[in-house]
Write a protein that binds this DNA or RNA. Structure first.
Length: 584
RNA sequence: GCACCCGUAGCUCAGUUGGAUAGAGCACAGGAUUCCUAAUCCUGGAGUCGCAAGUUCGAAUCUUGCCGGGUGCGCCA
């Protein structure tokens, strides 16, 4: 829409600009207050300098030229410092809206002309640990980023960088060994005997023991060597443990509506064999120095506490590898094998320095060509009441499964209260959609860079700028269409009330909003947009009768408008990974 | 010590190529339902945009300094 207006303006002012020998950028925006106009142009102020004339005079000249284009503008007005306020002709708006609505995806206007291959690395759960609130943000923000980029025509390859290798795994295997053997001896499937809480307990026991008992520590180290050498017996145990653990993870993904699948799993184990080769590549570039026995890359731009250069450790003094090497190897795989054009990491802000270093080393070592975009999407921490990273009273992480369960229960209370004539089964479905939606939306509706203090009250609030508000607007529209046979596919929207005009103007901002999120990767912009749109719809709904209005044409027009808004809300919520119930 | 993030209404937060009177929600006060879902809508009060200087027609936004909070900084991920 904005583009269409900009095109019209450019065309009208072509001669004027040519005369003056200038070609300024045309960027019409919505004014702060609708009483000023539908769109405004902030052009005369900057031109005032160039042309050495009072901005208001320039604005008046431009307004006069534009006002002649009666097809596009109802009126154009120059105002105090030099703003040019435009009121669009209804017929122009109606035509624009008509072609906007006829796009099946509603996003045609902003699709990329040259599809890219985009890697999104998110969730990154650890094997043998239950998912907790700490995994929530990466998982849902990553999922949304993937959905949005994909919706604009790019090829998204999601990568779940599992923590499934190294010392922790060795320790769990050592502890789980006897339980697995016992199950097999008793003719049971070990996968049925084990569960994630057990694995987590094994891990905790082992860490405690290794800390206090050198013999145990040595034993675990022995397991690590055997695992790294891929001894079949250990690999078998490892497979079982991984399967048990991921079984629970997928339950939560499914509940959350997150689309990660086994095919997206590229854990540390996947890269284990490639590590030496990557170290070799970096070494060949002459970047490696030995420091305290470890292979390091020193980069001038990173300094340590004492001002000395900060190393990126590529290989530890004991010959082992750590996370920088895994990430460098993954970068190499993603550019060379997966042919990525853009690689996006969704992890918390505390890893910012780590990724800066890894990206810098990867560029310097030629593992990633310059044209490949590397982005770290950071987010703040979820804090407890004490403003420290959230823990339960016993110092445990809050389990995601329990949190989500509680959200659904709270949502059920509301559904039951507000609409208890709905069939029981449907009430439960709605509770799930609104409860899960509320949790996800509460997290995504604010700028991801900020920390926030966790509270059920906040996450489960069902009024104001929340998922249920958007879902409710959607359900009300669907309700209208249950009461009519009319299908508004070929009805054109005719503007007859100010609420309709505002709604149409906002609706047509949808493609640009999505496009913006695909670039700056800030989903809260889309949340804010959908909330604005829903607010305008609610206002329209209470002030304009739809089914029983003055005449058939108006009824059809309003139905067509309602249908369009319903499609946008559904599509928008879909991009946020939130479901839109038809009744609630 | 150095680096990054943050500081906007009582609370939670929006607000970018610098633009008009700084906006929402929650909370608070009042009003709206013979009518398409009131999980709604309408009206109202509420602000030294952390502080100070600078850049200019114009600064919450850009620059510098300071104050306050958080995070990170060699073999954990």
């Amino acid at each position: 829409m904005k583009q269409q207006i900009a095109d019209r303006i450019s065309k009208n002012l072509e001669n004027f600009f040519k005369e003056k020998g200038i070609s300024p950028e045309i960027n019409p925006t919505r004014p702060p207050d609708p009483s000023k106009g539908d769109y405004t142009l902030n052009l005369a102020m900057p031109l005032g300098k160039v042309l050495k004339k009072p901005p208001l005079l320039i604005a008046e000249t431009i307004a006069e030229i534009l006002a002649e284009d009666k097809k596009t503008f109802e009126s154009v007005e120059a105002v105090k410092p030099g703003f040019i306020n435009m009121r669009l002709a209804n017929s122009f708006l109606e035509d624009q809206f008509d072609s906007f609505v006829s796009s099946p995806s509603l996003l045609e206007a902003s699709k990329s002309e040259t599809p890219k291959r985009v890697i999104v690395d998110y969730s990154s759960v650890n094997i043998a640990k239950q998912m907790h609130v700490g995994h929530l943000r990466s998982t849902i923000i990553g999922d949304v980023i993937a959905r949005i980029i994909e919706s604009l025509g790019d090829k998204v390859i999601a990568q779940n960088h599992l923590g499934d290798w190294g010392v922790p795994m060795a320790m769990v295997i050592r502890k789980a060994e006897s339980a697995i053997d016992k199950a097999i001896a008793e003719n049971q499937n070990p996968e049925d005997v084990l569960d994630t809480p057990m694995l987590e307990a094994f891990y905790k026991e082992a860490t405690a023991e290794c800390k206090s008992d050198p013999v145990e520590a040595a034993a675990c180290h022995d397991y690590l060597i055997r695992l790294q050498n891929q001894e079949q017996k250990l690999i078998d145990y490892w497979q079982i443990i991984k399967k048990v653990s991921m079984r629970d993870v997928y339950k939560i993904y499914k509940l959350l509506g997150v689309r990660l699948e086994p095919e997206n799993e590229r854990g540390e184990s996947f890269y284990a064999d490639m590590l030496p080769e990557i170290v070799e590549k970096i070494q060949q570039k002459g970047l490696i120095e030995i420091s305290d026995g470890a292979k390091c890359v020193f980069l001038d731009e990173f300094k340590a506490k004492d001002g000395t250069p900060l190393p990126v450790i590529i290989q530890k003094s004991d010959g082992g590898y750590n996370y920088a090497t895994f990430d460098l190897t993954a970068l190499h795989y993603r550019t060379n094998t997966l042919k990525a054009d853009r690689i996006i990491y969704v992890t918390d802000a505390r890893q910012a320095l780590h990724f800066k270093q890894v990206f810098a080393v990867a560029r310097k070592a030629g593992l990633v060509p310059e044209k490949v975009m590397l982005e770290h999407v950071t987010f703040g921490s979820i804090l407890g009441e004490d403003n420290k990273p959230l823990k339960t009273r016993d110092g445990e992480n809050v389990k995601l499964a329990e949190l989500l369960d509680e959200a659904i229960k709270a949502a059920y209370q509301v559904v039951d209260d507000k609409n208890n004539t709905l069939p029981e089964e449907y009430k439960q479905q709605v509770a799930k959609m609104t409860g899960i939606g509320a949790v996800k939306y509460a997290d995504m509706a604010q700028n991801r860079n900020n920390d926030y203090v966790f509270s059920f009250e906040r996450m489960l609030a069902l009024s104001g700028n929340t998922a249920p508000y958007l879902q409710y607007a959607h359900a009300r529209i669907c309700s209208i269409f249950r009461k009519t046979d009319f299908i508004p596919s070929d009805a054109k929207v005719i503007i007859s009330a100010p609420e309709e005009k505002e709604l149409i103007l906002k609706a047509m901002e949808f493609p640009l909003t999505v496009k913006t999120v695909s670039e700056d990767l800030k989903p809260h912009t889309l949340c804010a947009y959908l909330y604005d749109l829903s607010t305008l719809f609610s206002s329209f709904y209470t002030n304009c009768r739809i089914l029983d209005c003055e005449n058939e044409n108006q009824k059809h027009s309003r139905l067509a408008l309602s249908r369009a808004i319903q499609r946008i809300i559904k599509k928008g919520l879909g991009l946020l990974g939130i479901e839109a119930p038809e009744e609630m």
